[in-house]
Design a protein around this nucleic acid. Sequence first.
DNA 1: AGACCAGCGAGAACACTGTTCACAAATATG
DNA 2: CATATTTGTGAACAGTGTTCTCGCTGGTCT
Lengths: 253, 253
Amino acid sequence: MDSESGPQSALPLSAGAAARGAALPRRERTRLATTDEIKAAAHDLLAPSPDGGDLSLRAVARQVGMTPSAIYRYFESREDLLEALARDAFDSVSATLAAAVEADTSAGSVDRAVAVAHAYRRWCLEHPADFGLIFRTDRPDTRASEAWRAHLLEFYRVPFEVLLRDMAAGEVAITPGAATPAVRADVLEAARLVAQDAEVMPEMVSLLVSLWASVHGFVCLELFGHVGLLMEDADAAFDQHVRAALVAVRRTG
Amino acid sequence: MDSESGPQSALPLSAGAAARGAALPRRERTRLATTDEIKAAAHDLLAPSPDGGDLSLRAVARQVGMTPSAIYRYFESREDLLEALARDAFDSVSATLAAAVEADTSAGSVDRAVAVAHAYRRWCLEHPADFGLIFRTDRPDTRASEAWRAHLLEFYRVPFEVLLRDMAAGEVAITPGAATPAVRADVLEAARLVAQDAEVMPEMVSLLVSLWASVHGFVCLELFGHVGLLMEDADAAFDQHVRAALVAVRRTG
DNA sequence: AGACCAGCGAGAACACTGTTCACAAATATG
DNA sequence: CATATTTGTGAACAGTGTTCTCGCTGGTCT
């Protein structure tokens, strides 16, 4: 709609250089500004075809009024730019989830968890390009970087905190089954850091992964047309899906 | 390993022109042969970087010893070739699932369903490039084609049949809840065609979508490193995940 | 048999692409 | 002021998808 208007912040969260670089020397301030301008332009051009499969570096250079080679002063390569966009997208969805649990007014724990799930689904449906950046099927090695790891852990913090609250309220009970999949030690450590004084059991992480897999899986199927092909009302189907997944781990009806 | 050896069938299922065109006129036979040769070459070149993001049409032309322009006698465009590969990949995973339920010797319904889920996960982990072709995040409009729809329905036939058998054995019970998400009429019709004389309730399709979303969701998270980052033993985690999802819909322990 | 023609492949060309390099303008620092 | 350092330019290179026109060749028809 406003693709002609000047560049604006690509994503809600990456409000960007303006805020970050308030007290920075002028040199770095302008650098961050144009960096964000490039990212914003790229993000705009990405909308029609997600994944960045055919995002042209020259096109974004044209959009920001620069020479293609000038972009390389800010990003090492086209792939580097795409990764930056992916990180911003990840931050965006993390913030959206955090905002959802913040704005939640429902009493029950199930409703709160359902609200988070709905927020995730809504974000994915409304930002298919960003979703595509996060879940690009090509270049899977990129996802192994240390930076990405940090974004991942930050992302899972929100649903983990929701789970923590529910357990504290006694609304979700862990049945300490014998065959609990092992959880990585560093993750447990990080989780205990988040949980402050509350107890953190490995079963919680395992449960979180299971629940999130169910939520994310439905969203995936929907984004690829599976749900639309089979079901009439995807909204209702999703709601029922996540409620069923949650009921399976609750003890109070 | 054998990227230098001559072109061979890209996927187990698309055994290809040799079988299909046994009784065809020579003209069409050779055409199908080179078509498969092109697809095989493209599939080989795809392995290192999935999704086909940087699959070069000229590279596959080089591999098969043709001029780039000659490829256009067999595929309208690079995208057309990728779609053909995606369809073959979808057929491959469908056949793998069918083979899994065929070879299944377990007695209980849960074990049979778990076997199908494991077969799906194994296929996805072993064929990341094909997975990437099926679940490419770019060009989402492609997935709306009629051809793709047919492949989709064929794919879901296998898990649906497993569900049918389990219900016939009385091992899975549908609780006819009041708020059942609506299922598309044509899908119900197709399902009844598959079910022959057995009764088909919309809840079954809804349940199938839910279960499959859980299975696929875990595989997705794993392929993108989420599971590996959080859990120690992904195999055990997956097994527990799908068993939990199945237990939630069973009545007999 | 010879004429015919659809289909196949080659090769050149066009408009792109990502990336690199040497050089000029602008900016900060001594 | 002089001097580095950063930022941007413009040309260039290799490679891409795609579209032409052109020959050739194998199968079909009379």
